[in-house]
């Protein structure tokens, strides 16, 4: 995974970077299965490797960016910032509970209640589903509204109102385009 990430940093071709990020998501999904988070792995595989790669490719096609960038040397100031931040974060992890520790604080507070009671209270075997839809229904409602809002935002940005913003454009582009009329 780290190797893919570094390949993304170093790749000069945008297309390669987008493809590598798809691979990165798939590897992350495999890693989630190893960490027994099957629901998350499922989502990551479908979303990260499927939809977001597709969207990135669509944007590449729309923006016509030059796929080959000139080689840029490693820039010292950002590198310094990154190294310092990373060192601070690693220093922070020294206080973290060890990996897989059942007594770690995140695993002891409200979780036993979910695990022990959800079977009788909600009657759904998949605890993730019962927490998602029932115990934390407000959260999920909020998330759904966020997705809805993002969708509306994209529609506003790229939908019907788009041509008004370029008054200098030829009228030919505005009227007889197949697809645009159907979208609007």
């Amino acid at each position: 995974m780290a190797a893919t990430a570094i390949a993304i940093v170093r790749s000069r071709k945008l297309f390669a970077a987008v493809m590598l990020s798809g691979i990165f998501s798939l590897i992350a999904a495999v890693f989630y299965v190893h960490l027994t988070a099957v629901d998350v792995a499922f989502t990551e595989a479908a979303v990260g490797a499927g939809i977001s790669t597709l969207l990135f490719l669509a944007t590449l096609a729309l923006t016509h960016t030059s796929t080959e960038e000139p080689h840029k040397p490693v820039r010292p100031l950002p590198l310094l910032i990154v190294v310092v931040t990373g060192a601070v974060l690693i220093y922070g992890t020294l206080d973290m509970p060890a990996y897989g520790d059942p007594e770690a604080p995140p695993n002891t507070h409200v979780i036993p209640r979910y695990i022990n009671e959800s079977g009788t209270e909600v009657g759904v075997p998949n605890i993730v589903t019962s927490v998602l839809a029932s115990y934390r229904g407000y959260d999920t409602l909020g998330e759904t509204v966020v997705i809805f809002t993002a969708g509306i935002g994209v529609l506003v940005l790229l939908g019907r109102g788009r041509r008004r913003w370029r008054p200098g454009l030829k009228s030919k582009n505005e009227d007889d385009e197949p697809g645009r009329g159907a979208e609007a």
Binding site: L35, T36, A37, D39, V40, T43, E44, V47, G48, P106, N107, V110, I111, Y114, I115, I127, V128, V131, L132, R136, D139, T140, E143, V146, I147, A150
Partner: peptide
């Protein structure tokens, strides 16, 4: 395994 982070991240991926 602890289900709560799974729930949070599941929604966070789609968002």
């Amino acid at each position: 395994a602890n289900p709560l982070p799974h729930v949070l991240i599941l929604t966070a991926i789609v968002v």
